[in-house]
């Protein structure tokens, strides 16, 4: 369920010694978000829990990034990424995210855990340039098809 929000050019900047924490189930549905997540995303805890994590997806983000993210974490690896997120009010905030799988005692993935830290300004500069080019390429080559089928195949994602 994604709301129609028009992105604005208002930026929120993370604080140095804070991090945004969120947890999801195996399908990417939010099961927990900390207070900083609630503050930056602008949604209430109620609104966040049970919804897909793409609720804060920014239209400037190329699909390939999330493709990589999902292929890594479902392969039991951790993933680091610079992500531009969009708050409920349309403002954006950059994060340096680390997503790791959570395992049960017998080693099966039960969900995912992500920590988002304040990103380096130089990293944001590079990432936004690269993402802009990627997005252009994706728009040209309609790469979105692959992404959707990836999620359908892996069954990790319900929209």
């Amino acid at each position: 369920m994604k709301r129609d929000i028009t992105p604005t050019s208002v930026e929120k900047v993370m604080r140095e010694d804070d991090f945004i924490v969120s947890m999801t189930d195996k399908t990417g549905r939010i099961t927990y978000g900390n207070r900083i997540f609630i503050e930056f995303s602008g949604y209430s805890e109620d609104e966040l829990i049970g919804t897909q994590h793409n609720i804060i997806r920014h239209p400037d983000m190329p699909r390939a990034v999330f493709n990589l993210l999902w292929s890594k974490i479902s392969n039991r690896e951790e993933c680091f990424a610079y992500v531009k997120n969009m708050a409920k009010d349309g403002s954006f905030y950059w994060v340096f995210t680390n997503v790791t799988p959570t395992f049960d005692p017998s080693g099966n993935i039960t969900g995912y855990f992500s920590v988002r830290r304040k990103p380096k300004a130089s990293g944001v500069k590079t990432a936004s340039e690269v993402y802009r080019l990627m997005l252009e390429a994706e728009k040209k080559s309609r790469a979105g098809e692959c992404h959707r089928s990836f999620h359908q195949n892996s069954g990790q994602h319900f929209e």
């Binding site: 947890m23 099961t31 927990y32 109620d46 039960t110 969900g111």
Partner: peptide, 10 residues
């Protein structure tokens, strides 16, 4: 360390 308290009152 993976459990959290959720549905905390507003």
């Amino acid at each position: 360390f993976n459990s959290r308290v959720i549905d905390i009152s507003e």
